[in-house]
Design a binder for these strands. Structure first.
Length: 642
RNA sequence: GCUGGCGUAGCUCAGCGGUAGAGCAGCUGAUUUGUAAUCAGCAGGUCGGGGGUUCGAAUCCCCUCGCCAGCUCCA
């Protein structure tokens, strides 16, 4: 029999008979195939049943690897599809990939799946797992595959087949269930150990709104029950960080059904938090050469026509009529800034000009997309528009990227960067889009930032760099964005006088750093799980008396702290100290000051940090010094103003 | 907007055809307490809103509003 050389993990080599499966080949390496989910052959993931016909390198795919989990989840999706087809034969299968924390499978089943159907499906899946059916791979020509799926009435699979360029495709079969699939898979259904179906939701076929809506069942799977329950309990933990819950519990912000969806109300504690952020923002912008401006809330409709918003953004805008004249309520702040720029003749020496505004805008968002503070209909952006000479553009973009990095560093956020290119609905020539996109790309490259490209996701007037932060459940939210725009300067005929005495066109950047205060406060609340650092905490100190005897001295401590400018409150109630501490702790107040007989007598305080640490009895002044240090408003690294 | 789910006291939730319940929070009283819950009493709801079925609806049906998960869209 012919032998081939197989190398394992780039190390051990063995001569094995040609044509045997990976599983069989492992015996030659004295490896236990039970520990392998699948294997990579020359870097390509393959089933353990894959037959080795030529010399190759193989590497294990272990259960604890991301790829191992992916294969498990993909196979679990197939098991689920088999269960669904056996319980609901009229359902058609669409696609069923593994995703970040699990998998889903889409079905065309017009009656829709009910919550209780999930239980039935789970039960059926368990039966299929007990049957331990092998996942069998077959390769066949596209034509044969088309015939097969046409015979089965699986029209979505036929559509998928149309898009596959290769002549040969693979199918997987377990029991009577056949699916078009690239693989690889587990050896058999019995290898699926711990899984749970989590939810049903509608999903448009191929993600296109005009396509039919399919039923998507989400689930997750792990190699053992312990990992599954760990994952499920981490989801429960994440729910405790949900800003909507913390917003209510900590009395930061809320919404009222009577007021309307997507409209935020700041409660006193949230009002303070927002004010601190606003002051921080203004200071940081002034320091970086931005000028504070303010535009009105609504502007005449002709202006929106001129800018292109009426043609490209109308669905997101609100309108109002005043004395027969129609006004558009601003969804963006750029127009007033453009008019401010245009209100004078500008010299090349004046540039760059950076106008900053905490601008409140209104956008009509579809009801289904609203989400706490993270997606609302009225929000305030930390918005600026930078007008600069073309030769300044890249350094301005880099300056904004630095600004973003500084600020995210202060809050301790990790972020992801995306570059979004020209969308279908957009204004301006190909030429200026290319120019704008290359400016953004150059700046990103020069900064050495890693980024993903989102094709066709740009704004209608220009490409953009988006900075994404994650919420407690790992969902990504766009916060900072830098948008490069040559279109609006052209539409508004902006100009400056160059050193040559001639008129030139400035470039324009639209940019936000935190993004919007609403969204940022939302993700920030989840990021800190409500335990804001002292400089942001709505209440920094709570003064707690042990008995009523402490009230007069406690009052004087409170007054002193208040006069020093700290955000302080008292708890003089007739309650045990433990009770008051528990309450302050639940309110996530950074410092508690315990006032008992000892402190009254020696004119001291005993601070307890939110961490639970007793800082020891000290003179009030010592605590004030400590708090001043702890609550100092942070300034970015290397900041001269510090 | 679409698909599925959920709206009962300030909060978390039970009740799911027979005249509204618990815990926490609130109020009152007692207790004067040293680092995450002292005890007792009281009060609190047109069961999201509207319509219908029924002798009788929080409970069943229809409409509507809001919320949650996801899809599409986006700061």
């Amino acid at each position: 029999m012919e032998k081939i050389e197989v190398r394992l993990d780039n190390k051990e080599k063995r001569l094995i008979p040609s044509g045997i499966s990976i599983k069989e080949a492992l015996e030659y390496f004295k490896k236990n195939p039970k520990e392998w989910v699948a294997a990579k052959v020359n870097g390509e993931p393959k089933d353990l049943s894959f037959r080795l016909n030529s010399p190759c390198d193989i590497e294990p795919i272990f259960p604890d690897s991301p790829l191992g989990l992916e294969i498990l989840r993909h196979s679990t999706a197939h098991v689920m599809a088999q269960a669904v087809k056996s319980l609901f034969p009229e359902a058609k299968v669409a696609i069923g990939p593994p995703i970040e924390n699990g998998f889903y499978y889409d079905f065309d089943y017009p009656p829709g799946f009910k919550q209780e159907d999930l239980e039935k499906i789970e039960k059926k899946m368990k039966e299929i797992i007990l049957q331990d059916l092998p996942f069998q791979r077959k390769e066949l020509s596209k034509k044969d595959a088309e015939e097969l799926f046409r015979g089965m009435g699986e029209t979505y699979k036929l559509e998928i087949l149309e898009d596959i360029p290769e002549e040969k495709v693979s199918i997987y079969q377990q029991g009577d269930f056949i699916d078009l699939c690239r693989g690889p898979h587990l050896e058999s259904t019995g290898k699926v150990k711990a899984f749970k179906l989590t939810s049903v939701a509608g999903a448009y076929w191929r993600g296109i709104e005009t396509n039919p809506m399919l039923q998507r069942i989400y689930g997750t799977a792990f190699f053992n029950e312990a990992d599954l329950s760990l994952y499920l309990s981490s989801l429960e933990e994440a729910k405790k960080r949900d800003h909507r819950r913390l917003g209510r519990e900590l009395e930061l912000f809320t919404q009222f059904e009577e007021i309307g969806p997507g409209l935020i109300v700041y409660l006193p504690k949230g009002g303070v938090l927002r004010h601190i952020l606003e002051e921080f923002e203004v200071r940081e912008h002034l320091k970086r050469g931005y000028q504070l401006v303010m535009g009105p809330q609504f502007l005449k409709i002709d202006l929106w026509k001129k800018s292109g918003h009426l043609d490209y953004y109308k669905e997101n805008m609100y309108f109002t009529e005043i004395e027969g004249e129609t006004y558009g309520i601003k969804p963006m702040n750029c127009l007033a800034h453009i008019l401010i720029y245009k209100s004078k003749i500008r010299s090349y020496r004046d540039l760059p000009i950076r106008y900053f505004e905490l601008g409140t805008v209104h956008r009509h968002e579809k009801s289904g997309v609203l989400h706490g503070m993270l997606r609302v209909r009225q929000f305030t952006q930390d918005d600026a528009h930078i007008f600069c000479r073309p030769d300044q553009l890249i350094s301005e973009i880099k300056g904004v990227l630095d600004f973003v990095d500084d600020v995210m560093g202060i809050f301790g956020f990790e972020y992801e960067v995306e570059l979004s290119t020209r969308p279908k609905k957009s204004i301006g020539s190909d030429d200026i889009w290319e120019h704008a996109t290359s400016a953004l790309t150059t700046a990103l490259k020069e900064k050495g930032l890693r980024y993903d490209i989102c094709k066709g996701e740009g704004a209608f007037y220009g490409p953009k760099i988006d900075i994404k932060l994650k919420d407690a459940l790992g969902r990504k939210w766009q916060c900072a964005t830098i948008q490069c725009d040559f279109a609006l300067p052209e539409r508004f005929d902006l100009g400056y006088i160059g050193s040559d005495g001639k008129r030139h066109r400035p470039a324009m950047l639209h940019r936000v750093i935190l993004g919007t205060l609403e969204r940022f406060i939302g993700v920030l609340t989840e990021h800190y799980a409500g335990a804001f650092p002292p400089w942001l905490a709505p209440v920094q100190v709570s003064v707690l008396t042990v008995t009523d005897r402490g009230i007069p001295y406690g009052k004087s401590v409170y007054e002193r702290l208040f006069d020093e400018g700290f955000r302080v409150e008292v708890d003089f109630r007739n309650q045990k100290l433990g009770y008051k501490i528990r309450e302050a702790q639940l309110k996530k107040i950074p410092f508690m000051l315990v006032i008992g007989d000892k402190e009254i007598e020696s004119k001291t305080v005993t601070p307890r940090a939110r961490s639970g640490k007793n800082l020891g009895t000290m003179p009030l002044q010592a605590f004030i010094d400590l708090l001043k240090e702890e609550a100092k408003i942070p300034t970015p690294k290397g900041d001269k103003a510090n």
